[in-house]
Design a binder for these strands. Sequence first.
DNA 1: TCAATAGTGTCTATAAGACACTATGCC
DNA 2: GGCATAGTGTCTTATAGACACTATTGA
Lengths: 229, 229
Amino acid sequence: MRRTEKLTRLKDPMTPILTVDAVLLTLLAGELSVALIKREATPFKGAWALPGVYVKEAEDDSAKAAADRALKSKAGATSPYLEEFGTRSGPARDPRGWSLTVIYYALVHHSVIPAATHLVPVAKLPGLAFDHAEIVGSVVERVRSKANYSSLPVFLLEEKFTLPELQAVYETLRGKPENPANFQRKIEEMGLIEMVPGEKKVSGRNRRAQVYTVIKAFRDRLSVRERGL
Amino acid sequence: MRRTEKLTRLKDPMTPILTVDAVLLTLLAGELSVALIKREATPFKGAWALPGVYVKEAEDDSAKAAADRALKSKAGATSPYLEEFGTRSGPARDPRGWSLTVIYYALVHHSVIPAATHLVPVAKLPGLAFDHAEIVGSVVERVRSKANYSSLPVFLLEEKFTLPELQAVYETLRGKPENPANFQRKIEEMGLIEMVPGEKKVSGRNRRAQVYTVIKAFRDRLSVRERGL
DNA sequence: TCAATAGTGTCTATAAGACACTATGCC
DNA sequence: GGCATAGTGTCTTATAGACACTATTGA
């Protein structure tokens, strides 16, 4: 029985708690935002926290599979890009006892996240349960860093997008503007995207932008530039 | 009692095995080598494996502390640079059952490793227990990659070293020669090392080389270059 | 003075960044 | 035509790499 199971875990001094937590990032109104859930059980009942689950031998084939399950069951989303960030562990981070969590992060376009899921701009993060505030901060730092030399920002867009849209995402993450000519040159050198012939995107009363898409090989992994962005 | 404890772990389907493994790297005769230990217990009794331990709530304050303990108790070494690499997990990697291991890697000069510890060139790796061969391969790849843009290689040297020695370490990890003038320029730009005034190193019947040391701020962490190498 | 390794000054090639311009579409 | 955004050609500057040279020591 589950209840007995948990008590055993609590009382056994040699069996650390093992969980995964997922940092699901998206752009909302031009702001990098993270998916948070309200805790329904102690500890930290009622506090905001990252979507996370216990790693279960019966359900998960790996820690990454557990992270997938956490994203699906707690935030209602799946992500083609789901990468391990690292671990946090120790006797103090969880009041229930010695715990270790494996942290994963994912980037998606906000359209794949249900409206019911709470998205909070990382710049206005409230207090979070456990060490989750520090975790979000560290993951955001990593993500911003990867925006400097990889294709990671494309995962924040929909399947089809324009170069100006892609440039805007890069600029948001890197926090500085980019020259369109130089930007196009560098993206081309990454061999990341391909034109969708004929398709143009209307965005007002101006010239329509050419539509692009990520080439198959990079749909679920990064393209990396040697010399940075 | 420990014996009962282990049986409980084996039979409990909800409690994954939690371990840490350490990849201790050093240069031996100019070859990147890894510390291996011979397993004394099942499974894989008699096979070569990475130094690793169970994470113990009573002994370890964190997974990293457990990795320190593994290095000290199994390889007889401590390392100022000990970094998390990632995790491996699943039902199949350990015959005892569902397991998760946190992998750490360390780089040291071979002089701090006891002669009794087995060091094997990573280019001539034998078959290893568990998924340890894949782990060593992935860590080596990461280390070689970091040699392209950070100060990581200095951890393979002693406290005092010369520029030609440092250059040789970089060349070994990167697998290609470097121009001395360009190398010195780039190392200087990293703000990594300082001259030890007056000290010169004799290495034959030739000109003596100036001795350098890593400045304090980078004794236990990396210095990173923006544009690589 | 020769061999061997240490160390430096400077030119060249390449890549990043700046800037000026042309293109398209709706009003 | 005018305005707004899309997109391109090219010059300038910064950095990486190549090369030629000088320096110091022991034999």
